[in-house]
Simulated assay, not measured.
Amino acid sequence: MVDRLKDKVALITGAARGQGREMAELFMREGAMAVVSGDVLDAADAEDSKVTFVKMDVTQPDQWKSVVADIVAQHGRIDILINNAAVCEYEPILETTDEQYDRVLDIDLKSIFLGMREVLPHMIQQQAGSIINVSSIWGLAGVPNSFAYQAAKGAILNVSKNVAATHGQDGVRCNSLHPGYILSPMNEHQAPEINAALIAGTVLKRPGVPIETAYAALFLASDEASYVTGTSLVVDGGYLAP
């Protein structure tokens, strides 16, 4: 532990498992005062973790208000927000229903609007804060399926740049994080042929693991990235390199 997040307070959505959980545990090891996981899912082995797990539906404004207010009341500040909660639907545009589109956009994109809107006033008041919005390589390149997912992930890039440009003078940094194929519960039911194609497309010829995304998030959250804002950090094993 090198205390890169010493005394910082973080809220990470979708952190009951997978990439988000890895981020939360790493942040605690790096000296964070508190890391809160907001998730609709139950966390495994929660009793063995220093992370604070709360039930939270990221599509509900009142739940954002309640969770953020509790964090500030208990710790006096909030330094880091990672909008990580997401779902993925694989249908192309002509097979995407209204209900699917609305559900994916609510969870993957509207939740980021709600979270940033709730957290920004506190970060502005303290003149410091780091927001990391988790997108995907599909926020940077086209793919012949997953229309709703790609719509959300592409928009995340620009809303992050917007907040960076709007609130840089308030001491708030905002960046997007773009993982490639990372082994996690979110894609454990993905078709083997899709997985094989994603691995073959990387220059490292292997999938990523959650800790590799977590270290990228750690950099963006820490003071080591004090001059990094409005950028899109890709963690994809070189998939987009060619």
Rank of each mutant, 00 (worst) to 15 (best):
S160C: 13
K161G: 14
V163R: 02
A164L: 11
A164T: 08
A165Q: 14
A165I: 07
T166W: 12
T166V: 09
T166Y: 11
H167S: 11
G168Y: 09
G168S: 14
G168E: 02
Q169H: 12
Q169V: 12
D170W: 02
D170A: 14
D170K: 10
D170L: 01
D170P: 01
D170S: 14
V172I: 12
V172G: 02
R173I: 09
C174T: 14
C174D: 09
N175M: 05
N175V: 06
S176C: 11
L177A: 03
L177H: 05
L177N: 05
H178Q: 10
P179S: 08
G180H: 06
Y181T: 08
Y181F: 13
Y181I: 07
Y181D: 06
Y181S: 09
L183E: 14
L183W: 10
L183V: 08
L183G: 03
L183M: 10
S184T: 15
M186E: 10
M186G: 11
E188Y: 09
H189N: 15
H189V: 12
A191Y: 09
P192S: 07
P192A: 05
P192N: 06
P192C: 05
E193N: 11
E193I: 00
E193D: 15
E193T: 12
E193P: 02
I194R: 08
I194D: 14
I194E: 15
N195P: 00
A196Y: 00
A196W: 00
A196D: 15
A197G: 13
A197C: 03
A197R: 14
L198C: 03
L198A: 12
I199Q: 02
I199H: 01
I199G: 01
A200F: 01
A200S: 12
G201R: 04
G201V: 02
V203Q: 08
V203P: 04
V203A: 04
L204C: 04
L204M: 14
K205M: 03
R206D: 00
P207H: 02
P207A: 13
P207G: 02
G208E: 02
G208C: 01
V209D: 06
V209E: 15
P210Y: 00
